[in-house]
């Protein structure tokens, strides 16, 4: 019993995990994405500004989301429906603990991945 209480106190004092629903990120206004021209090339910087930062992806997935190479490791060029980056958002399992990514942004990511197959 004493061990348990000591463990509980110690853990509550030293625990490093920051937890909880990130409402500050979920309800942070991000500009609506306009459909745009199909010819417009979407870059990693666009995905970062419109998806990775406003939805807080970078907070938990900084290792791969912080650079283009890392992001590309999560997509299959030309095949959004085989790309984990798209699928996790599309099925609602990400962002964890927050409302799903809206349709306009999903279409934006879909276009980005399709363009990767066509142009690179």
């Amino acid at each position: 019993m004493k061990t348990f209480i000591a463990l509980l106190l110690l853990t509550s004092l030293t625990s490093c995990v920051e937890t909880g629903t990130r409402e500050d990120l979920i309800f942070q206004e991000a500009p609506t994405i306009e459909p745009g021209s199909p010819d417009e090339i979407i870059t990693y910087a666009d995905i970062r500004a419109n998806i990775l930062e406003p939805f807080g992806c970078i907070n938990c997935h900084s290792r791969w989301a912080n650079n283009e190479e890392g992001l590309l490791s999560r997509v299959t060029p030309g095949e959004p429906f085989s790309s984990p980056f798209y699928l996790r958002m599309e099925d609602g399992s990400m962002p964890l603990g927050g409302p799903s990514v809206d349709r306009s942004r999903l279409e934006y990511v879909e276009r980005f991945i399709r363009q990767l197959g066509e142009n690179r």
Partner: peptide, 12 residues
């Protein structure tokens, strides 16, 4: 999908 390494204590 989260590759960041963290110690056991950091996950408790």
């Amino acid at each position: 999908s989260n590759e960041e390494e963290s110690s056991f204590a950091e996950e408790i």
